[in-house]
Nucleic acid binder design. Structure first.
Length: 298
DNA sequence: CTCCAGGTCGTTG
DNA sequence: CAACGACATGGA
């Protein structure tokens, strides 16, 4: 990967295994807006990013991206890690294809997916909201929460965008105010999660140092956080790449590919842990997107 | 109008 | 343990 500045923009060239659309649209994050083909704006870690993936041939090398109005410091501090750009996806793909040859086609379908390394708090709240909701609804609620309680960022053109609210800010929001954001029956879940973080029972940085199962056990002590939501938080918000969230889609896909019969979620999860090991989380995201694309299971 | 959504909880068999 | 309805809200 080559990096250089051009005016106020940052140019990335020769980035392997990265497609901005694959990565943002695969259901792992919710706080972004599509501006045009392969062009997005997004907020994370209190920062705003306008990014465009170049057409092949537009710049001297393929796999090029323009990060508008972004400094090298900002990139190194936030976006490099957010997009997981230090991870070699080539070797991960080899590992997964070695585990099961059929993953070759599954990965080829959306080979530019990367597992975003997102903020713990935002991931936790977003996936508590996600239960029994469709992705567009989740995005809508995350945007509403941000507009009401996030920090303002004033862009160069004068437009105002909002970051996802901090834990301290959401901690001051009443039940009724939360309900106005359309989170419905999840209000007490969100409030309990915030409370447990506020009083120190839950600490994102501390969770990172624990074993996968220990960290998950603690996350699931939050009412409203079950195995699936906990696994999403572990994978997308805490860097546990072995986590394998099994939702309705994954259940259908795994049943179709491996079990050929109705199978319980925890059985599927154990099977995936055995087959895909430390990279189960990556496999999950390739499989999820593949299955959704193919419309597996109606 | 009915059904269901990147689920989880509490209650019954 | 396994099965099942409830839960807010919005879109098909």
């Amino acid at each position: 990967m080559n990096i250089y500045c051009r005016d106020n923009d940052l140019i990335l060239e020769d980035v392997k295994d990265f497609d901005i659309e694959d990565t943002l649209e695969c259901g792992q994050c919710f706080h972004f807006t599509k501006l045009a083909e392969k062009e997005y704006e997004l907020m994370a870690f209190g920062k705003y990013l306008h990014i465009r993936q170049c057409e092949d041939g537009e710049l001297s090398k393929p796999g090029s991206f323009i990060l508008y109005d972004t400094s090298m410091d900002n990139f190194r501090l936030v976006w490099k890690n957010y997009f997981d750009l230090d991870t070699d996806y080539g070797s991960i793909k080899k590992y997964l294809i070695n585990a099961d040859e059929r993953l070759k086609d599954v990965i080829a379908n959306h080979s530019g997916i990367r597992i975003l390394r997102q903020d713990f708090f935002e991931t936790l709240i977003s996936f508590i909201i996600s239960q029994n909701k469709q992705i567009p609804h989740i995005k809508q609620i995350v945007h509403t929460l941000s507009e009401k309680y996030g920090e303002e960022i004033i862009l160069n053109d004068g437009r105002i965008v909002h970051t996802f609210p901090t834990m301290d800010k959401l901690n001051t929001v009443s039940e009724d105010e939360l309900r106005e954001c359309k989170v419905g029956f999840r209000v007490p879940y969100i409030r309990q999660a915030i409370h447990m973080i506020d009083n120190g029972e839950i600490d994102g940085e501390a969770l990172r140092t624990l074993s996968f199962y220990e960290a998950r056990r603690i996350l699931m002590s939050i009412k409203g956080v079950g195995e699936k939501v906990a696994n999403c938080v572990l994978l997308f918000g805490l860097g546990f790449t072995a986590a394998f969230p099994v939702d309705v889609w994954m259940k259908r896909i795994m049943e179709e590919m491996y079990f050929h019969k109705n199978t319980k979620k925890d059985v599927i999860e154990k099977f995936a842990a055995t087959l895909f090991g430390k990279y189960a989380g990556y496999a999950q995201q390739y499989l999820f997107t593949y299955g959704r694309d193919m419309g597996i299971g109606k």
